[in-house]
Amino acid sequence: MSRENAVNLAALAGAWRLERFVYRWPDGRELAPLGEARGQLLYLLDGDGEPARMAVQVAACRRPPFDPASEASLAAHFQSGFAYTGGWALEGDAVHHDVEIASLPFWEGTRLTRQVALEGGRLQLTTEEPSPQLPEGGYMTILEWTRDAL
């Protein structure tokens, strides 16, 4: 996906449906950390057309049956997705997520920055920041989205 298309607030605003979530290493190897996943991303503007709120939720499509009495089951479900919400800002080809509430508490109060590529109804967000699933890093996280209707 090309980064040459100018990204603007109006083009980014709205609802997006997750199509693909992978980690990619420099040698081209990829890993889908949640297996097949589903998700939704929302970028909302205020009445003046400025960034207001954003929210994202990503979850594995296949999760084991939930047993609230089992710590292993609780841990497996906690590791099978993530969600957060807060403010957002767009600077050039980078979008900043100012996290206020998150399923991963250590994200709260942080700024998560993603590189943006927008082409037609497809959005790609990438980062080289390590993920909680693989904290050693060395890969790029890629989330690909398509425009969704609310």
Results as ranks from 00 to 15, higher is better:
Glu71Ala: 14
Ala83Gly: 15
Gly49Trp: 02
Gly109Cys: 00
Leu45Val: 06
Pro51Gln: 08
Ala13Glu: 01
Tyr23Gly: 01
His77Gln: 00
Val95Arg: 13
Ala76Leu: 04
Val58Lys: 08
Glu91Ala: 15
Ala60Glu: 05
Glu119Trp: 03
Ala59Leu: 12
Gly86Arg: 07
Tyr23Met: 11
Cys61His: 02
Leu90Ser: 07
Ala32Tyr: 04
Ala32Arg: 11
Cys61Thr: 13
Ala6Leu: 14
Leu18Ala: 06
Gly109Leu: 01
Arg29Cys: 01
Val56Ala: 15
Ser80Cys: 01
Glu119Val: 06
Gly49Arg: 04
Asp27Glu: 13
Tyr84Pro: 03
Thr85Val: 12
Gln115Ser: 00
Leu45Ala: 01
His96Gly: 09
Cys61Gly: 05
Leu45Cys: 07
Pro51Leu: 10
Val7Arg: 12
Arg53Ile: 05
Leu104Asn: 14
Leu45Thr: 09
Gly28Met: 00
Asp48Arg: 14
Leu74Gly: 04
Ser103His: 00
Pro26Thr: 00
Arg122His: 06
Ala6Lys: 10
Gly28Phe: 01
Gly14Trp: 13
Ala94Lys: 15
Gly87Glu: 09
Phe66Val: 10
Gln57Phe: 05
Arg122Phe: 01
Gly120Met: 10
Leu104Thr: 12
Gly47His: 09
His97Pro: 11
Ala37Glu: 05
Gly14Met: 14
Arg63Gln: 15
Thr113Ser: 14
Leu12Ile: 04
Leu44Trp: 03
Ser103Gln: 02
Leu104Met: 12
His77Trp: 01
His97Ala: 12
Gly49Ile: 06
Gly92Gln: 10
Glu50Ser: 15
Asp27Val: 06
Arg114Thr: 02
His77Phe: 00
Gly81Tyr: 07
Leu42Gln: 11
Pro26Trp: 00
Gly47Pro: 02
Ile101Met: 14
Trp25Asp: 04
Gly14Phe: 12
Cys61Tyr: 02
Asp67Phe: 15
Leu74Glu: 06
Ala83Ile: 03
Pro65Cys: 03
Leu34Met: 04
Gly35Ile: 05
Arg24Ser: 07
Gly81Gln: 07
Val116Gln: 03
